[in-house]
Design a protein around this nucleic acid. Structure first.
Lengths: 251, 251
DNA sequence: GAACGCCGTTCGGCATTGTCGAACACCGAC
DNA sequence: GTCGGTGTTCGACAATGCCGAACGGCGTTC
């Protein structure tokens, strides 16, 4: 890619690597993975540390993500049009459906969760905002796949015995999504969980995100393993409402 | 600062600027603020866009923060020791005190909120995680100021008529904090709100963060405008519990 | 309607800048 | 003691990314 600043791309690659791995990473490990000299990586890491994007563990010397990123990440949430427009509609959807609501958009071949409303009951739930989900195994992801040029990654990871991993099978699934205007995921990502999602369209009718509900299969689906039409209606209504907001937002 | 990568520092400065301003920023505006050539800034922005750290509005051409930062930010939360150790203690504190609980640490002269438990009642509240609060006008901030070398910024912003803006006055306040082992903020940041906080100590007794509760003055304080001793006790207990966890966490 | 100011973008030349690789100091384990 | 593993420093080279001027659109202004 011409006209791009090399050191910044490398810094971003390091940050992505730190975000991927489950914790601290050593300098040598990073240098080896990116095929760079240790000295080079050290210089970049020192700079990233200086600006607060990474921190170094005093005892092991290993590096991890830094606190400044948290503020940048939440600042992104404040600006995001998709999120701000959907907040008003996500709460009613959760209330009417009785399920958790999530809103996602595409990031680097995965679904980025930009908003999350907990299921109305009082069960313990963890906040999914900022999480990355697979495109091919979630209802949100299938919607985004179906309406965007983005193709799924070459290898379709299997998460459960129901995950669609065949390219041909997935393509047929996506055709159905385009035809119906909504997508499902029934125990394809997590056993016992199902989800329904519909596309959110922005300026010019382009699909910019997806909104959906998720919960236990027995609540989402009827005895024929199909989602309740009532729930599908709620989700589609919410998606349309957000789309209208988003289209009107553009002057 | 020698041995630091110039372009990365500049990229970070741009990101910080985008996070500070309330939305999109123009290229010229950024270039002027940072005293750089427009071409230079453009190259950096193009790279940041390429890695997903910034996005560009098609119609105005202006730049804003990108989605990739959200995932990096939440990944930081997953790693953060202070946060993960305090989660177990924050919920009981909220339940016992009946108030919202927040945990903060120092970032660039301000308090970064790394964890937030809502007040147990069902009133509408917004998640503060990732927010940056002033050091001198919040209970969390005063604790961090009192026990860390970090000095407050040169100018102490005034938020309410009770905000402590005199350097001398603040120093006396911090002395009291060190002596008592906890800090308060009574309508110094937001009118009608008060807070109590205590220090969290990590490996070697160093103060690495603060935990505190906040809510309406009439609930936090008695009729003499002093926080209820019962609540102070709860906060200090929680702070000690987290500190113990954190100290034990180091192998 | 033409001239102006502003926007983001492109491009080529110069030298500043960041890269590299080897050498260093440290730690723990075999 | 030695070896393999950290993270770190340093100096030399040239590749790299900076700068500034020029470009093409837009909207406003006169």
């Amino acid at each position: 890619m011409p006209g791009t600043v090399q050191s910044i791309e490398r810094a971003a690659a390091i940050l992505r690597m730190l975000a991927g791995g489950p914790g601290r990473l050593g300098l040598g490990e990073i240098a080896r993975s990116l095929d760079l000299a240790k000295g080079t990586v050290h210089g970049i890491l020192r700079t990233l540390q200086h600006v607060g994007f990474v921190e170094q563990d005093r005892v092991s010397g290993h590096y991890q993500l830094g606190a400044a990123l948290l503020h940048l990440g939440t600042s992104y949430l404040d600006i995001n049009d998709l999120r701000s427009r959907s907040i008003n509609w996500a709460d009613p959807l959760a209330a009417r459906s009785g399920e958790a609501v999530r809103i996602g958009t595409v990031l680097q071949g995965r679904v980025l969760v930009v908003h999350h409303v907990f299921r109305p009951d009082d069960t313990f739930q963890t906040l999914d905002i900022g999480a990355l989900l697979p495109l091919h195994a979630t209802a949100l992801g299938k919607v985004l796949l179906a309406y965007r040029a983005a193709r799924p990654g070459a290898s379709l990871d299997r998460f459960t015995h129901r995950t669609v991993v065949g390219a041909r099978e997935l393509a047929a699934d996506l055709d159905r999504v385009r035809e119906a205007g909504w997508a499902t995921d029934i125990e394809e990502y997590t056993v016992g969980e199902a989800a329904v999602a519909a596309p959110i369209r922005g300026y010019g009718g382009l699909v910019v995100g997806a909104i959906g509900i998720s919960g236990l299969v027995e609540r989402i689906c009827d005895n024929r393993y199909r989602p309740h039409p009532r729930l599908v209606g709620y989700v589609r209504d919410a998606a349309r409402a957000v789309s209208r907001d988003l289209g009107a937002a553009r002057h």
